[in-house]
Write a protein that binds this DNA or RNA. Structure first.
Lengths: 355, 355
DNA sequence: GTTAGCACTCGTTTTGATTGAGTGCTAACA
DNA sequence: TGTTAGCACTCAATCAAAACGAGTGCTAAC
């Protein structure tokens, strides 16, 4: 059977209508609301075909049709067009995300919130893992007698603190001098290479400077090496409660369960496989492996964050979410983030520091 | 009318039963389950009195009674006894919160999670605001040509980074020297006093060192002065969905709305007024001013965090939450946190650093 | 190939009767 | 005077039957 022009029109109508109403769509409704120039009876015949092809399904005999997973897939891959933002949407985004933010965390929080409010779905933003990113500079800062903070600046201009404990920590000047030595060894290493043989080798050279220094050095290495936690920003979780498909509290609870588990969210955001592409990815219903989220779809993409690393943004809604709007908005946001982050990190070309 | 011994017993029975079942409690139930040695008819008479006194109320004529807000208040203030933790609870806490954590954030996240799992309610933990806390040390760390990070160590050994932008930032050595000067002025100031006249005065003295230095100095001051965001850790929000009182999605949505707004949560945690006391505070139903949370109660308390500042922990459940268990668990956790944080911050007595 | 007509299906809504938990009141009892 | 058994009454919750109606598939006519 061929998916001719008319079938496509009908499928599109069904999906559009179902996205808007969450009610099974009947032949009569289509005939009335969408001007296809054919009678309900004809539409019924076509719908029967579409059902056989697996694009739509019937909850029960006396109900209209709803899109199946592959129906949505077909729609998303072949029929949906990315649209321009409406003036309202553009205006909203302009006001919601300020360029003058000086912390990535705020920016991400803002972004998540803006997306959630604009789409009325749930948004998750992940800052990139720092493993793989090179160290630009390490400096030890005194905290108290036995404690110092190792401040690590990466090539992305991200800054992380690590507490270092050692008996009789050197004083500020001592720490500063020590920082210089540590830098000369660790500079340009990736965070997760920091325990490599080469570094171990270099470490030996410092044995002469006394046990204390080696201890501190070791502490820095072992602390910095620890896998960094991925930061996640979530917003609009409550939005899902507004959709009739989750008015069953049991279902809602399952989903909320998933949202409280970081691992789940990270899996949800996916990435890694397809990280290179600048493409927006859509995961429909059961296509994701998480049972709890089988009634949800995810629209997700990377955003550039500094030179090599990327963060992820995902928008989660019911399977019948408004893919077209969501994709358009996400696309716009990503473009915007690029500019802002570029500005914040000081841009690529003059980002080098020789100190 | 006097609240005699028997009335108290009956009120207690009603509250206990209602907490356990969420169903209105009838005279017959009390006579059967609680061995008061009186007949349902007598209980009915007493209940009639209790209702007149405002401690219980009737959803409708043919239903049992449920505790009113002032009923809970009476119970909590005069009738409830803090109990010991059960072995299971103690065991759970022991495993859930590790002493060997080296970041406050993890500790707080762990704490929130443990409390939420143990009580089956929602937990919010707030790290203290840093305003009012004195600066122990500031150090500038190079980031790139135009950027440095101001690393601020407070007397609590908390560390905060601030990005400072300036044209032609000094190099590492320059920044280090500059840090020394900044320190000599700002040391021992409270974070929110940093813009005071005295500092402005001191600033003038540095005019001789050139415009650049003054600029950086200014940037540090204005950045550090900004009110710090309070960090919040939430866990177990989904738990509330399990209670019959929130099986109406509308209600649940309202509550979740509140949980997504930081300001709300901060108000919810309260504190400030009664910060000094080491006491556990209970806010019942409409006693909090937030309309969205009028069906919830909050059990909250301070935990010590370093010398002067305190964080807040709150456990939020339905009005008919198990106050007795919640108070006991919270009490225990706070004791535990004290020990752990003390160890983490290096203890008070040798916390001074002169560098 | 299209469509009007019609019988049929089946979930949803409506209605009305039934049930039962719980009350308040009264009268009897200790 | 306090307690209790008895009883009429209230009212939400439950249940079954009936009516409704949205939608379908099939057939026959155009």
């Amino acid at each position: 059977m061929k998916l001719n022009e008319r079938k496509i029109k009908i499928l599109e109508a069904i999906i559009t209508d179902y996205i808007a109403t969450a009610e099974p769509v009947g032949s009569r409704t289509i005939a009335r609301k969408y001007d296809l120039g054919i009678s309900p009876a004809t539409i019924r015949n076509e719908m029967s075909d579409l059902e056989e092809m697996g694009f739509i399904e019937q909850p029960h005999t006396s109900a209209g049709r709803i899109p199946s997973q592959s129906g949505y897939r077909m729609y998303v891959d072949n029929m949906m067009h990315k649209r321009m933002l409406t003036d309202d949407e553009a205006e909203f985004l302009k006001n919601a995300i300020s360029f003058n933010v000086n912390r990535v965390e705020y920016l991400m929080q803002q972004t998540a919130k803006a997306l959630a409010m604009l789409t009325n779905y749930t948004t998750v933003v992940a800052e990139p893992k720092s493993s793989g990113v090179k160290i630009k500079h390490i400096q030890l800062v005194p905290v108290d007698k036995n404690t110092a903070a190792a401040v690590v600046v990466t090539e992305n201009n991200a800054i992380k603190n690590h507490m270092i404990k050692a008996k009789n920590m050197p004083d500020a000047d001592g720490l500063y001098r020590l920082s210089g030595k540590i830098n000369s060894v660790l500079e340009n290493y990736a965070l997760d290479d920091i325990n490599s043989d080469k570094v171990q080798e270099a470490l030996k050279e410092f044995a002469d400077y006394g046990e204390l220094i080696v201890n501190v050095f070791r502490a820095v290495i072992s602390t910095v090496r620890q896998e960094e936690d991925i930061h996640l920003y979530t917003s609009g979780v409550k939005n899902l409660l507004g959709f009739p498909e989750f008015s069953d509290v049991k279902k809602a609870k399952n989903i909320f369960q998933a949202f409280e588990e970081k691992d789940m969210l990270i899996t949800l955001l996916g990435g890694g496989e397809d990280t290179a592409a600048d493409k927006i990815e859509i995961v429909i219903g059961g296509e994701n492996k998480m049972e709890e989220l089988k009634d949800c779809s995810i629209v997700r993409a990377n955003y550039r964050y500094g030179k090599n690393s990327v963060g992820r943004i995902g928008i989660i809604g019911p399977t019948r979410m408004n893919y077209s709007q969501t994709v358009s908005v996400l696309d716009e946001i990503i473009r915007k983030l690029d500019t802002i982050i570029d500005a914040m990190l000081g841009g690529g070309e003059d980002g080098d520091y020789d100190g």
